[in-house]
Design a protein around this nucleic acid. Structure first.
Length: 448
RNA sequence: UCCUGAGUAGCUCAGUUGGUUAGAGCAUCUGACUGUUAAUCAGAGGGUCGUAGGUUCAAGUCCUACCUCAGGAGCCA
């Protein structure tokens, strides 16, 4: 089937071509009609003049309802009157399947309504731009690791036990073996991969059955988790920074027009991305704690009203949502906080020999957003790890294979996890993470 | 699990101190218009006011319960 794509119009000026797609919108003015065609690569204004086409072609315009399929042939013209700078001067139209009355009109809709029609909403320009940026991030993630000789290492989605013992997992029956659980992290398997291949990354779906109800949580999301043998916490922080610079840099290079669609016209989306390209701030947990104490002291002294769910940060706590936003609002670039109290971190994180109450853990916090990356150097000493498993009251038997990694040539190693949707949400400046994935799964939504 | 808020036309919303026949924009349909940008203009159709009960001469409006959804916290990526 002969056709050109809207994204290539700039190379086709003056030529007679055919575009195939759907009607995104239409404006008519008696003897002239403007059809907006959408073909997946972009939008094109198609101009139909009554005295330039035969009667049947002009009448065909009336048959086109929003989202009806059609093909249109005409000459490509450059013009500043058309969005995008190019339009098609129509000579003929071929009607395809007519669309029934379309539920999504050009006027505003509520998010709930749009999510009920997510399968159609994806055709609209904002989701379209978001998904193209998501695609660029995914390709960039794979390229980044591929170029650095990391092995793509797929971890299982069905797992035998509730490994980390922290979050609630989805469960399903597994033949005669009892219950299986959907993976909440590929990390432990990634560590086996690092011992076999040196440098690996796990990139796949992750499932958490938490009854989370915030704009930063999904129950099914995609996470990329590099794991490297002979890498310490410092190496992990360096890798995380280099990684973010690379993938966000790709969006800046390749997706300017999509960022413009999502922007309010101020250019702040590009500006935000450029902030991330700067060197990251780094601070010890103790320093961050000091800053937070002062921050909230000043806030309370100023008499400013704090949200009803606000809880004052105390030394030894993990940071809450308010703390992360507060801390990052003070800096231009992302902030890496390291050396969190071991008591608030996972059992597999190594403790700092010089500060035994601190874990060799780090979080990358994005400006005015919060955690996008969490990582650590892993405990590589068998006895220490056994102690942690006992302290956390985890079933030792379930971890025998993981303990083997320490029994047979244990080495220092580290890694981190990055939530893809959180990054998409931040780059696209979305109000809610559910718009960062094609079909979000949340507490109250498993449809469509 | 906890806290807060919302449910009125296909969609987004207004509806005063309880008071006659329930309001607008968009969408749909009819008509006008040769450069529109969410086109505009004129007209038409479209309602179990979330559900159930209660108070009252009178309830979209007040009360009670329930349902659904949204926002925030915690958990985390």
């Amino acid at each position: 089937m002969q056709r050109e794509y809207v994204q290539d119009l700039s190379k086709l000026v003056g030529q007679e071509i055919t575009l195939r797609g759907w009607l995104y919108g239409k404006r008519s003015s008696g003897k002239i009609q403007f059809l907006i065609l959408r073909d997946g690569t972009g939008h094109c204004q198609c101009v139909v003049m009554k005295n330039a086409v035969d009667a049947a072609t002009y009448a065909a315009c009336d048959e086109l309802s929003q989202e009806s399929a059609f093909a249109v042939t005409g000459k490509v013209q450059a013009t500043d009157k058309a969005p995008g700078g190019y339009e098609l001067f129509v000579s003929s139209i071929e009607l395809g399947a007519k669309a029934a009355e379309y539920p999504i009109t050009p006027k505003e809709h509520g998010v709930e309504y749009l999510m009920e029609h997510r399968h159609l909403w994806l055709r609209s320009s904002r989701p379209w731009a978001t998904m193209r940026i998501r695609d660029t991030l995914i390709v960039a993630i794979r390229n980044f690791f591929h170029e650095r000789d990391f092995l793509c290492f797929d971890s299982p989605i069905l797992t035998p036990n509730a490994a980390e013992g922290t979050s609630t997992l989805f469960e399903t029956k597994y033949f005669e073996e009892g219950m299986a659980y959907l993976s909440q992290s590929g990390q432990l398997y990634g560590e086996a991969g690092a011992m076999a291949f040196g440098k690996v990354y796990v990139f796949g779906p992750t499932f958490r059955a938490e009854r989370s109800k915030t704009k930063r949580h999904l129950n099914e999301f995609w996470m990329v988790e590099p794991e490297v043998a002979f890498m310490d916490l410092e190496g992990g922080m360096q890798l995380a920074e280099e990684f973010v610079h690379y993938i966000v840099g790709r969006v800046l290079e390749e997706r300017q027009s999509e960022l413009a669609i999502l922007d309010d016209g101020s250019g702040r989306l590009v500006e935000r991305c450029q902030r991330v390209m700067k060197p990251f701030e780094r601070m010890h947990y103790d320093e961050a704690a000091k800053i937070l104490y002062k921050y909230w002291d000043d806030k309370l002294a100023s008499g400013e009203e704090l949200p009803p769910t606000f809880k004052r940060f105390e030394y030894g706590d993990d940071f809450g949502a308010y703390d992360e936003v507060a801390l990052t609002s003070l800096y231009d670039a992302p902030v890496i906080v390291h050396h969190y109290p071991a008591s608030v971190k996972a059992f597999y994180m190594k403790r700092d020999p010089n500060e035994p109450d601190k874990a060799l853990a780090m979080d990358v916090l994005f400006p005015e957003f919060g955690e996008i990356i969490g990582g650590s150097q892993r405990e590589d000493n068998l006895d220490e790890l056994l102690k942690r498993i006992e302290e956390h009251q985890l079933p030792k038997a379930a971890f025998e294979w993981y303990l083997d990694l320490r029994r047979y040539g244990s080495v220092p190693h580290a890694g981190f996890g990055l939530g893809l949707e959180r990054l998409v949400m931040w780059v696209c400046d979305l109000d809610h993470i559910r718009e960062a994935i094609p079909f979000p799964r949340t507490l109250t939504r498993i449809w469509p």
